[in-house]
Design a protein around this nucleic acid. Structure first.
Lengths: 335, 335
DNA sequence: TTGAAAGCGGTACCAG
DNA sequence: CTGGTACCGCTTTCAA
């Protein structure tokens, strides 16, 4: 790195001997400039390694080509693949992702949303629909399309792409109940800011209650999910409530640890205990027993979110898209 | 969303009846403004939901508080946790991440680097040290600190944080050789742009050659790694070369599929075939047999990269940090 | 402690 | 097809 000031439009204009805005046009509308001149301009650009200054461009054009993206985590691909697909979709329109990551820290969301908005994004995509009040206000006041992703089980500010997490919880529990399990528990990482997890838990409760099975045991910790967490929680849970015969896990990674705990406790899966995960980790199909889980279509959520952003920028109306998810039945529940 | 123009410093200045730059100072250096005035200004800011325009601010200050981050993938947390930790480190200095993802597409790197540089980042963190020539030129010409992450087995532009991937490949192979395996193979996703993977393969070759074991079999595909890919490649490989007794996998996720293939082929692991992965996927310890693998300290790489960026911005010299990695020995090789 | 004025590097509109 | 000229919204001297 050498710290001299980078070349500007003016530098290259001067070098070629034309005005600044001829150069500007050569870049944005090449065919409004004489081919020969254009060539000389391009040569100068190449030679000086000129890179346009989008701070200036965005300020002047009062639009930035930035899409703000706010997620709760990048860990273990919970949202990483959504961002991945979203970014790919946005790239087709030369839209740039400005990423912010709350890491499930409730105090961060407002701060990060402010930070993202300060770049005057042309749109914002954000995980969840349950934001602190001020966040919703800021998002609305920003005057740009807002796409709320992942959870659409409720009203959205502008547009939404995701699925209903209560329904997922219900499906997890109903599957277990259909398989003959009767003493269900819910287990996993549960952070205050993770409203989606609470909704899935709620769904589990609803299904259990509808089946007349009474209260479920719940074992959670506010730490990020991991196999070790799952093993610890399961071990403790089964010590306290040995009658439990089915465990709904808040993530596959946690379920991996639960399976390990059950192996150590010599409780057979699925004959004595059934286990359902959430998230469809690539490893879930490779465990023994393989793990029954919920497969949300993250790629679709990212892609559709990108498409909604683009549609909104083209003047289309806000809308809500439901993304697919399915229960993938494997060995851990096929009793 | 309502599309009226967002409030500016001028709007709030007018509302309070002071000049623009009094407001500006109230934000950046609160104690240079009379407390009472400051309160009225803050009230107006709150009321109008004012969010500063960083395009303007950055342009004016000729620095942006953006750190450009260029990765090759976000899929299955190969780099996601690096970004996660990097972002956390940068947040302490109010630095914002502008993320670009090449998805291992060789054609994208130059384009994305240009795009990132156009935001006049104060620094750039990028995966890898083997860039197309033009990318290196642009990065150097940008005149800001550049941190090359993940691979530091060679010269860096400015600073680097990572480890030597050739050494990793060597360690994988040597471990297998020490365990008594003799007919090694390398298997997995291998994309042109993934120079690190080639280096690991090279390391495997070096170790095998040093042990006088001759050529190794290689089974790769240019597609993203997955269990299915691993299973397919392993099945084919062992059909062609049934004498193979050890497989070095380019990622854990691929290794999961390899283990599945071996199970189906009724080849015992580790007694008949040894398997080593790379990446330390959380599930690796939960498989049966559990997977021996290489654990790179991704969190450290992200955190250290952030620290190097910050140090460089404080005027310190460029430097290279080696991050930890270790071979985690588990059941898949303990013959 | 506060204000006026000159940019930062582009874009957009209008004239030539 | 090309150049002149106001801005875009904020920061930064420099005075007051």
């Amino acid at each position: 790195m050498d710290s001299k000031a980078p070349p500007t439009l003016a530098s290259i204009a001067e070098r070629v001997g034309v005005s600044v805005n001829t150069v500007s046009r050569a870049l944005r509308a090449p065919n409004t400039v004489r081919p020969q001149l254009r060539q000389r301009i391009n040569a100068a650009i190449e030679e000086l390694n000129y890179v346009p200054n989008r701070l200036a461009g965005g300020l002047s054009a009062t639009r930035s080509d930035i899409v703000g993206v706010v997620v709760a985590s990048l860990y273990h691909s919970e949202f990483a693949s959504i961002v991945d697909a979203l970014q790919a979709a946005l790239l087709t329109q030369n839209l740039q992702v400005m990423l912010a990551n709350t890491r499930y820290d409730p105090d961060q969301e407002e701060r990060l949303v402010r930070s993202v908005l300060s770049w005057r994004p042309v749109a914002v995509a954000i995980v969840g629909i349950d934001h602190p009040a001020k966040v919703s206000v800021l998002l609305k006041a920003a005057g740009v399309p807002i796409v709320e992703m992942w959870d659409v089980g409720g009203p959205v500010i502008d547009s939404g792409v995701g699925f209903d997490h209560v329904a997922v919880g219900r499906a997890q529990a109903m599957h277990l109940i259909e398989r003959g399990y009767r003493r269900l528990a819910f287990l996993g990482s549960l952070r205050d800011n993770d409203r989606r997890a609470y909704k899935r838990l709620q769904g589990v409760r609803e299904a259990v209650s509808a089946a007349g099975l009474g209260e479920i045991a719940v074992a959670t910790m506010p730490h990020p999910g991991s196999p070790d967490l799952g093993e610890a929680l399961a071990t403790e849970l089964l010590a306290q409530s040995p009658e439990i015969d089915a465990i709904v896990c808040n993530s596959d990674v946690v379920a991996f640890g639960v399976l390990r705990a059950l192996r150590k406790l010599d409780r057979k899966v699925p004959s004595e205990v059934g286990v359902v995960g959430f998230g469809d980790n690539p490893a879930s199909s490779c465990l023994t027993p393989s793990l029954t889980t919920i497969r949300p279509d993250r790629e679709a959520i990212g892609r559709l979110s990108g498409e909604v952003v683009i549609a909104r920028l083209n003047g289309e109306e806000g809308r809500v898209c439901f993304a697919d998810w399915s229960l993938v039945e494997r060995e851990s529940t096929s009793s």
